[in-house]
Design a protein around this nucleic acid. Structure first.
Length: 335
DNA sequence: AAAGCCCTCAACCGCCGTCTC
DNA sequence: TGAGACGGCGGTTGAGGGCTT
């Protein structure tokens, strides 16, 4: 079954590399290059498997590697690309000079996944959890939808409890820290996924209402839900799931949609992708965006009619805007 | 102070596609 | 043409360090 081992396991050392081993490998590769990994350990005087040498070199010793923290823009790139290509770490890493697929994978698994989850976004589909639930609801008869809603609320409660009791997160610090996206003032009645992280308990009920609204909306208008497309953002800055996010925080254009924080060139408040991270799509042209801006202003303060406005916007996006300017095989971020 | 828990990340594993003979 | 070798990739593991209780 499977391939034979690339080397005799009995004769090779495993585990952490020592500085001496690193030196041997580096100096050998500097002199001879990386032509044949099977021969490299033998010729370099290392009791290591060729594969282990290759990993050590590509993930750690390569001189062009960047070590240390991922920048905000790197994180945006990862999330942006992950929403399109899924767990194709090498593909994603190729867009980040100095980063390896292992780096990207580790960073995703340890930081970014949690970050997105904390914002109420499913890191696999890049859709808001409530939206996913609403999609599921469209396939169920009403009695089961009720059960689904109950179950979801239970899960949400658990998640909230987890977040609120997580002592390692100093919520006060986060709100006053340099991560402005977590403390952006929101219009009355507008909830954001980021507020989950701040631990503002009064938002919980509001969010539950949003989930309920999503489910009932899905039941009433299943057609309004995108099928295999990421969730959209309405002109009011509200996503199709009912969560408010500022589309202006996604100015990095990628084939027809924008992605990124204000620091990347747009006006707008706070930060942060940490507030607004999504794979959501916006319109293609600046002109169109301008129109949406006007529309957003017109609709300001109409939160009471949020559902109606959201539906209106949803249909507008579907008819007027290019949500994803990507080939079909990249359209579905669910891998 | 110490035990337990959690998080991070380097390293390993096994599968797959491509290359070579 | 097929088998073996090799490199690449994504998933998983576990050591080590920091934090909490």
């Amino acid at each position: 079954m499977g391939r034979i081992p690339c080397c005799e396991k009995d004769n090779v050392k495993r585990g952490q590399w020592t500085p001496e081993e690193d030196n041997k490998l580096s100096s050998y590769i500097a002199r001879h290059g990386t032509r044949n990994w099977r021969l490299i350990p033998k010729n370099a005087g290392l009791q290591r498997c060729g594969k282990s040498c290759r990993l050590r070199w590509t993930n750690y010793l390569r001189p062009d590697l960047k070590h240390g923290e991922f920048s905000e823009s790197e994180e945006q790139t990862i999330v942006k690309l992950h929403s399109v290509v899924g767990n194709r770490w090498s593909l994603i890493a190729a867009q980040l000079p100095g980063r390896t697929d292992n780096d990207v994978k580790n960073h995703w698994n340890t930081k970014l996944k949690k970050k997105l989850s904390g914002m109420g976004i499913d890191p696999v589909t890049h859709k808001p959890f409530s939206h996913l639930m609403a999609e599921i609801a469209t396939t169920l008869p009403p009695p089961q939808v009720a059960h689904l809603a109950e179950a979801a609320l239970g899960c949400f409660k658990d998640e909230m409890l987890h977040l609120l009791t997580k002592k390692r997160i100093d919520f006060q610090l986060q709100r006053s820290s340099s991560t402005p996206g977590y403390d952006v003032p929101q219009p009355a009645g507008v909830n954001t996924a980021a507020t989950f992280v701040t631990g503002r308990t009064e938002d919980k009920d509001d969010t539950i209402q949003k989930i309920k609204l999503g489910v009932s909306r899905a039941m009433q208008e299943p057609d309004a839900l995108p099928t295999n497309k990421p969730w959209t953002i309405t002109s009011t800055g509200e996503t199709s799931d009912g969560f408010a996010r500022d589309r202006n925080t996604f100015p990095v254009k990628i084939s027809g949609f924008q992605y990124g924080p204000p620091s990347y060139g747009n006006e707008g408040d706070g930060s942060a992708w940490s507030q607004s991270m999504c794979t959501g799509s916006t319109c293609t042209g600046g002109d169109q965006q301008g129109r949406l801006h006007e529309k957003a202003e017109e609709e300001d303060g109409e939160e009471a009619e949020g559902g109606k406005a959201a539906r209106k916007e949803s249909s507008m996006f579907n008819s007027d805007c290019v949500l994803w300017d990507l080939s079909d095989d990249l359209m579905n971020p669910i891998v």
